[in-house]
Write a protein that binds this DNA or RNA. Structure first.
Lengths: 150, 150
DNA sequence: ATTATAATTGGAATAGTTCTTGATATTGAT
DNA sequence: ATCAATATCAAGAACTATTCCAATTATAAT
C-alpha cells in the first residue's frame, strides 16, 4: 500500500500535548521506528534542526539510536521527497518538513531561520535572465538580514 | 593610497595573451604577491574555481605557495569585498570575481556554473513574502537544471 | 519457520577547511 | 638606514560534518 497525503495526522490530547500519527509507509518509504521518530521531530520542531539537533532530541524516545542512523533516516526522507534539506553556506545541513516551494530568511541577530514564500503568481524564473535553453528543476533562495521588531 | 575601482586593468599583448595589472592595494587590502596572483587567476579563469583549483593553477607562478595561503588569500579578498564566495550545497566553496548582484545556474549535465542576473527593475525582496520588519542585507539564488542546446 | 532483503549500529575514514606556530616580509617612526 | 611593530606566509596538525564499512538486527516474502 502506498500512502501519499496526508502523511501525518495531528490530534490534540486532553493535556494539550500533540500526538502525531505517521502512516506505515510514506511515498514508498517504509516507516521504521527510527524514521518515524526522526520525521515526528521535524514535524514538531519546525526550526530547521541539524542532524545533530535531531539526534539529541530523538534519544528521548530511542535512547540507542546512532547518529549514523539519524543521517540515514534524514537522507531516506529527503530522497523520497518527504522532507527538504537546506544548506546555508557551509554550515551543517538543516532539515525542513515544509514541502511547498519557499526560500529562507536567516535572521543574523537571533539565528532563527524563517520560511519565506513567493508572492502569489510569481515565478522566479521569470525575473531572472536565464541562459537560453535552461530547464530549471530546482530553486534555492536564501536571504540574510535582521528582523527589526520596533 | 587607497585604490578603489577599477581594480584591474586588462591589456592585450601582441601574442594575444592577456596581461592584468593589479593595483598595490584594493579596498584597503595590501596586494601581496600571493594575493595578487590568486586574484589574477579568478579574473582570468571565470568558471568559479574551488580553493584547490586556484592552488593548482597558482603554482605555475608561485611554486612555493601553500594551500593554506590560498585559503588565507581568498578569505582576505572575500572579507574586503573584492571577490565573492559561492556555496552549492555542501560542496567545496567556489570563488567568483563578479561583484554585481547575481545568482547562479548549475548545469547538471556539464557541471558548469553560469552567472544569472536579475531582469532590470526587479528587486527580489519585492516578489517574496518577507516577515514583517525584515531588513535584507544579502541574497543568494541558486538554480539547478539542464541546458538544452537543441 | 526459513530465507532474503533492508535497516541499524558504532567506529573508522574522509574531505574541506581552519588553526597553530615559527619564520619571513613589510611598514612606519626615528 | 635601522629598528620595532605588525602583517603575512608556510607546513602540518587539528577540527567537524558527513560518509563508509562490517557486523548485527529487524522485517518481509515464501
Amino acid at each position: 500500500m502506498r500512502t501519499y497525503f496526508p502523511v501525518a495526522m495531528v490530534s490534540k490530547n486532553p493535556d494539550h500535548s500533540v500526538e502525531i500519527e505517521i502512516s506505515e509507509e510514506i511515498s514508498g518509504l517504509r516507516m521504521t521506528r527510527q524514521r518515524r521518530e526522526v520525521y515526528r521531530i521535524l514535524q514538531q520542531q519546525r526550526n530547521h534542526p541539524t542532524a545533530n539537533d535531531v539526534f539529541m532530541r530523538v534519544k528521548d524516545r530511542l535512547p540507542n539510536i546512532s547518529l549514523a542512523t539519524v543521517y540515514n533516516c534524514l537522507e531516506a526522507l529527503v530522497q523520497h521527497g518527504i522532507i527538504r534539506q537546506v544548506n546555508f553556506d557551509r554550515e551543517s545541513s538543516r532539515y525542513c518538513p515544509n514541502l511547498s516551494e519557499h526560500g529562507h530568511f536567516h535572521d543574523a541577530t537571533t539565528g532563527v531561520i524563517h520560511d519565506v514564500s513567493f508572492k502569489p503568481g510569481i515565478n522566479l524564473a521569470d525575473v531572472l535572465d536565464l541562459p537560453p535553453g535552461a530547464i530549471i528543476d530546482g530553486v534555492e533562495v536564501t536571504l540574510r538580514g535582521k528582523l527589526v521588531t520596533s
